[in-house]
Write a protein that binds this DNA or RNA. Structure first.
Lengths: 247, 247
DNA sequence: GTGAACATTTGATCCACATCAAATAGCTTC
DNA sequence: GAAGCTATTTGATGTGGATCAAATGTTCAC
């Protein structure tokens, strides 16, 4: 074990939760940090939290104190309106951060729900700000992560503003595929963690439309669908779909 | 003048461009900074740039080096796709920051165009990161600004994902009204700086649909439209429109 | 293991907005 | 100040996806 080379001052618990030990460090906040710097980050991230499927990590309007790094599992964020309708604003997987939207108003602006049993690292935000005043690399990386979220949101705006249903779904599947690939999973085969209704909510479509688009993709040999299990059979074909925006 | 109490070491040019002198400091980056801290920020923001209507502040794929604070004028940001179609991702007014999307990939991901003759303050990003390692308040405020952009984008996603045309336009008008109010202008009367087509692109609608919605609002006595000049006659009426999402 | 609740698929119909088209009104330029 | 833009309005028609409906498959609780 790598722990045998570490000083004994770390408790077993701390080592267990340490960023320096985490196989997500190339996706998550420690990206680019030296070993010593990562150790400092470990001290912030000493608490982890397990959630069962369906549990809320936080809810809209709760006070914002920490951001969360997903260590395992899968989440959605959504916003509810007064009239009961809601919109999914994103799906998050391992190594991604949750809660960035809460910084601005010091309270969360959406709900974060685990879509499968999950585990997150809690990062008290004021501590993160403190450490990023010390560690330039951490500061810059954190800024990049926030900026990436803005860029992602612009992508969704384009999807919602000018793509037709099948293009939206193709874009969604290719995006998932790419993110699974970055995590060492198969680019072509994965399980959806969300329902057709949640996909539809994210893509600005009704669940029936999502279902029909899946069926159509299957008919055309682009994918094989069996419930939540997806196999991508023709990536170029899906990519081609993405570039035929509504006029 | 307040300058008479300042040390003589500041050149006239520097005083002219200084945040400490700028009447936007309560909207812009200096928010919450002490006088001394604002002076430090002044040193970063020594260069300003004037743009005529239609000029680009930056274009997609250009290297990212600075963010920009709008000192006067009005901008849009948009993203172009290969096939020539484009989507407006935002309209920005005085005191707002441009270029945050560029941090993640170190190159701009959209175009920023002046919609009227404008002036911006150039803030070299690495200097801003440096200073925000020194000034906690600046760091935290900058994080809030980025987070606010994420929250704003989520709002647009909801608008595009589940509102019908008239609700989108009502939301848009009320948002403009609120931002003009925050800048000391009338909440009820303003000039649009963008075309119907640009509004439509932002709202995921065709220009004809935007025009029809304006006409309908006018018929119903909610607003008075004369070309680009808008007078809001019935704010509660517009607000009521916003809460009838498509089922 | 069984029943109830939930998720998905598929068909039929409807409607909000897109598209196509044409007239008019402002703005720019020489 | 006339000509030529571009922006806007308004009307007529088409259509992609919503809505309504019903059958079927899957999951979970007891």
């Amino acid at each position: 074990m790598s722990t045998q080379s570490q000083p004994a001052k770390f408790s077993l618990e701390l080592v267990k939760t340490a960023c320096s030990n985490c196989n997500l460090r190339e996706l998550c906040l420690p990206l680019g940090l030296s070993h010593d710097e990562t150790i400092k980050l470990d001290e912030l991230v000493s608490t982890r939290k397990r959630l069962k499927r369906g549990e809320y990590l936080y809810r809209a309007n709760q006070p914002f104190e920490s951001i969360y790094a997903i260590r395992s599992g899968f989440f959605k964020t959504d916003v509810l309106l007064e009239d009961g309708r809601d919109q999914v604003t994103g799906f998050q997987m391992t190594g991604e951060l949750l809660g960035l939207d809460g910084i601005s108003s010091e309270s969360h602006t959406c709900n974060a729900v685990a879509l499968e049993d999950s585990e997150v690292c809690t990062i008290p935000f004021s501590n993160l700000e403190g450490l990023s005043r010390e560690i330039h690399t951490l500061q810059h990386h954190f800024h990049k992560v926030m900026s990436r979220e803005i860029v992602r949101d612009h992508g969704v705006m384009m999807l919602l503003g000018m793509m037709r249903a099948e293009e939206r779904l193709a874009t969604f599947l290719l995006n998932l595929s790419q993110r699974f690939t970055a995590r060492g999973y198969s680019p072509a085969e994965f399980n959806l963690r969300m329902t057709r209704e949640e996909i539809g909510s994210y893509l600005g479509l009704k669940l029936e439309t999502v279902s029909r688009a899946f069926s159509r993709f299957q008919e055309e040999g682009l994918i094989a669908v069996q419930q939540k299990h997806i196999r991508i059979l023709n990536t170029p074909g899906l990519k081609k779909l993405m570039s035929q925006q509504r006029a």
